[in-house]
Amino acid sequence: MNIKKQVTLLDKIGMEKAIGKIGADISKRLLNENIAFVGIQTRGVPFAKRLSEIYSAQTNKTPAMGRLDITLYRDDLNQVLDWPVVKESEIDFKVEGKTIILVDDVLFTGRTVRAALNALSDYGRPKCVKLAVLVDRGHRELPIEANYFGMKIETSPLDYVSVLFNETDGKDEVKIIEQNI
């Protein structure tokens, strides 16, 4: 049991393309909005930064940047075995009137995004919140969908989707680790 099979879904070039596509999409559609990228800790942060760079390049505007740790908003704190470390949140701008792009690497159950939406609303009342993810792997437990995504894949609930960024992990890669029981 527990034999794991790893399949690479995106390599460095694949990731660059996928992120580029999302960035271009946002730049086009939200050109006239007062936007801010908020990356969800941990992998949402480098992803948001890359998106903002694309946005700046294509629109000549510098969007606001923030990072959000959703630990204190998790709905499973009464059940977790490994108590999570609180990571840095940093939103140094007023969220009022802004179109916030929440950015995360993987969209799965939707619970992280739910937590992020709650956290965000404690900062204030943005004009609008959009969601950008690199991988949508299905199995939603809440009515949440991404506005922008790099790829949609079929997974088993036990699989683990690993997204690596050069900034945090030393390389760019998306892979799926299958769990055979």
């Binding site: 969800i40 799965f108 769990q179």
Partner: peptide, 17 residues
């Protein structure tokens, strides 16, 4: 591994000690 499998785990593998 992840019993309550959701993408929380991907961001917080460390446990507070």
């Amino acid at each position: 591994m992840n019993k309550t499998s959701d993408n929380f785990n991907s961001s917080s593998i460390q446990s507070s000690a």
